[in-house]
Structure formats: structure tokens, C-alpha cells
Nucleic acid binder design. Structure first.
Lengths: 243, 243
DNA sequence: TTGTAGACAACTCTAATACAAGTGCGTTCG
DNA sequence: CGAACGCACTTGTATTAGAGTTGTCTACAA
């Protein structure tokens, strides 16, 4: 029974990778070490490894070594792209219509978050391929938004217009029924499910500088959250009861 | 040893910082001292510290030293407690009722994720203060669930019963309307908004070992997501279009 | 065609060293 | 007494060298 050496080796290594033998350090032994272990030349070991690379199981960097592919730490961050990028990537034409633009006294729930009485409020409708896709309302302290015009907001994303660096955010996600207003704008029946999202964005000092509310039609959107670290529960992370 | 020195050191230091070893004086040993302790060059120790700085755990000032960073970054992780803990803390009486418990052939969408034809399916209703609060369905490969009984599942959370360590998860969150079945169990009107969550939990090797679906009544629940790092957009992170 | 052997280039990581720049503190000098 | 200085120690940055790795090539044997 004549069989091909490098395929044998590939099979053996595939087994070890899948079994997680190497997953601990994520690094494979060097080609030289494997060559010694299998009593095969380095070139042969290499061909076996290349088979596994084609399968997407492992990858290599010159001068560094072979490692099991898809290191679980970097990927999730990359996968969570912005919705704009994601839409651009999939060829969806995105567009936004400014519905309201006003400097005004802040409602109470805005004051509590932003801590300013006077704010700029911008309400706009985002479209994807001509269909309404999100209603976004942004509140921003008046002094930060002072130099902004309706045209600015229409052309550039909000975060680019503020000259302060944004640091982090907290967002809440909830299911709700579409109100009359939502329904008309999103072109869905009144009472149909929508995703309501509220986001508080802070600057480097931790001060809240943006409050935004987003309404998405439930039938077209969902959230994806990646939790690379250990989560000692099967329950969805971040859920809380509201009253 | 085929592993990267500075990553080892980073891991060791991360442990100490999180354990609070340095929190007393808030100051870390100098790079030179650490270099001596780990028998590594100062450059290597430095790279490890830079990893921790990128994570926001520590920071440094030239001519002064390294210190544990103000902990606003660690907090969000703590704030995202499990719903069970949260409920217990606020004095809500939680309780679960097993509705279904069966070993069976996996439906297609389960096979695609778990990669096994035979599964254990458990459906249960979670109650909070006597009111229905979540419908949870869990699928788990039959071989992993073999030693489980209906009674086990009733008494302990699922993740405690599996003797394998869970690593990470991906969850999707969507808004939907309550089906007849949902409505009856959750005691809400048919068609009222619900949060639908699907979660894929993996073990240390990255293999998917649990698939769970959760349905929450929209009026009582919401998700909170903390994003400590920079997010270059005001748009909610993780949103994607579904078709 | 497959496998072995060897050589060399390019790359990565680490060690070692040196120097610039900032901080804290004690000493000295006016 | 107060300001200036020096000194020890720190981080920030750059350069060199060496060992170990993958990437690629040629030559040769089975």
C-alpha cells in the first residue's frame, strides 16, 4: 500500500489541530521540529502544512511560525464593523434625509445625561437602497454643535464633525412597538416590532457628549454581540429588567 | 518553548493587576525591576506593559513610572452581570419551569451550528416574581448531555452541569412579534413586541457546544452593551441587516 | 512524481546597549 | 528663606546583534 507521505503527515497534524492539542499556545512546533519528529524532510512537512493552510486550519508568518488560524481574540472585533461600512461593502446604497434640525431647550431626560440645558437636536431618516431603515435622533450640547449647519449634518457622519475624540459608549437595546410616527417614517404597520436603541457616547474624559436614539424596523435588523472572554452562563449577556 | 515571551509576561502582569496586587500603592515595579524578576530584557517587559496599556489596564508617565489606570474600564465588565445575579441582588424571586426535555434528531439549523445529528433539547420558562420573563430553548450535543436528567436541568443552570469549560459566545438580538406560543407562555398579547436572542456558546477549542434561543417580553427587558474602547461612529455597534 | 538534502534570503523576536527626556528630592548657593 | 542646581531614577526611543523561523530555490535520488 503506497501512500503519499505528506498527506499522512497532513492528516496527523489536522487531527492534532482539531483536537486542540496545539490550541493551548496556539503555536505549532517549527518545521524543523516536526521534520525531526516525523523523520521527514522539512520540505515534506512544509507541504503538509500548506495543505492545512489551504483548508484554512492554520496559517504562518515568515520569521514567526505556524499557528492555528482564526485567533479568537482579534476576529470578533473586526467582524463587528459599522453598519455603514457593512452596507457599503454589500453594495447597498445608503442615504440620509434630515427631518429636523434645531437648537432648543433640552428635555429632562436629555439634561440628565448631557448635563446642559441648551442642545442641538438632529432627527434624520437613514435609507438603505431607497427603503427607510433607521430613524436617528441625536442630542448634542449646544456649545459643541454651534459651528454645525444643517448641510454639515447631511453630508458627514456626526462623529466626524465634532473635533473632540470620542472614547466609549453605553447602548441599550430594546424591543418595542412602532408608534404612529415611527410607522409612517419606516413604512411599516403601526404596532409592528421595532428595535429601539439608546446610545450615550462619551469623550476621553468620560463626559457624556452625545445622546442618540435609534429606531430600526424589526424585520430587517438584528444585533450581533461577540463575547470572546469567558461568560459563565448561557444567558444572553447584558440583559436587564426594566420597569 | 514555542511561545512568545512578552505575551507570557503580559498575562502574568495582567493577572496581578486584576488581582489587585499592585493596587495598594497603585504603582508597578519599574521596568528594570520587572526585567530582573522575569529575567527578560527591558524591551520585552516594556512590550508586555504596552499590551496592558492598550487594554487600558495600566498607564505610564515618563520619568515617573507605571501605575494601574483609573478603573473606569474594568467597571463595565462588572456591570454586565448575569441576569440571575442581577435579579437575586434586587430581591426578585426567580424560578424556572421545565416545559420540554428530550433527546432527539436535531433540526437542520441546529445541525449546522453544533455539527451533530443527535441532540438534547430543553425548553423552559423562567419566572421573575411569579411573572413569566423568558422562554429559553437550549440545544446541546447528545453526548455532552447524556448524563443529564430533567431534574438536573431544573435545579442548576445549564452551564454548571457541563463539565467542560466554556470559552466565548456570539449572540444576536432582534425584535419580533410574539407568536401564539410565545404569547401564551409569556402572558402577553399575540403580536406584541418581544426580544429574540440567539446565542452560540463555544468551548475552549472554539467548537460550538451550546445553541440557545431566548424570547423576552419587550416591555420588561432591554439589553445593555458597554463599549469601553473607541467606537468611530454614533451608530449602535453590532447592528446588521437581515433579509 | 514524490521525497530528501542543502543553501540562502527575508522576517520576527529578544537581548543588550546607549542616549534623550521627564520626575522627584535633596543639596547648595545667593 | 527661596531659588537653582545636581543627582538618582524613571520612561521613551533608537540601534545593534544574534538566534530562530518561514519562504524559496537548486540539485539529486527513488
Amino acid at each position: 500500500m503506497r501512500s503519499i507521505r505528506y498527506q499522512q503527515i497532513a492528516e496527523e497534524l489536522r487531527g492534532r489541530v482539531l483536537a486542540g492539542d496545539f490550541a493551548a499556545g496556539r503555536m505549532l512546533p517549527s518545521e524543523s521540529e516536526l521534520s525531526a519528529e516525523f523523520s521527514a524532510s522539512r520540505v515534506t512537512v512544509r507541504r503538509a502544512l500548506e495543505v492545512l493552510r489551504d483548508e484554512g486550519l492554520v496559517d504562518a508568518r515568515q520569521g514567526f511560525g505556524w499557528f492555528v488560524a482564526g485567533d479568537p481574540l482579534r476576529q470578533p472585533l473586526g467582524r463587528l464593523a459599522t453598519i455603514e461600512e457593512q452596507m457599503a461593502e454589500s453594495g447597498v446604497v445608503s442615504e440620509r434625509r434630515i427631518l429636523e434640525f434645531a437648537f432648543e431647550r433640552a428635555p429632562k431626560f436629555v439634561t440628565r445625561v448631557l448635563n446642559t440645558p441648551q442642545v442641538l437636536r438632529v432627527k434624520r431618516l437613514n435609507m438603505a437602497d431607497g427603503e427607510p431603515f433607521a430613524i436617528v435622533t441625536v442630542w448634542c450640547p449646544a456649545d459643541l454643535g454651534q459651528h454645525l449647519s444643517r448641510r454639515d449634518v447631511e453630508q458627514s457622519p456626526f462623529y466626524e464633525l465634532l473635533d473632540i475624540p470620542l472614547q466609549g459608549a453605553t447602548q441599550t437595546i430594546a424591543a418595542d412597538a412602532a408608534t404612529d410616527d415611527d410607522a409612517k417614517l419606516l413604512q411599516v404597520p403601526v404596532g409592528s416590532p421595532v428595535l429601539r436603541c439608546e446610545r450615550v457616547t462619551s469623550d476621553a474624559t468620560g463626559r457624556a457628549v452625545l445622546l442618540s436614539r435609534h429606531v430600526f424596523p424589526g424585520h430587517r435588523t438584528e444585533f450581533v454581540v461577540d463575547l470572546p472572554q469567558a461568560a459563565p452562563s448561557i444567558a444572553p449577556t447584558g440583559l436587564r429588567l426594566v420597569d
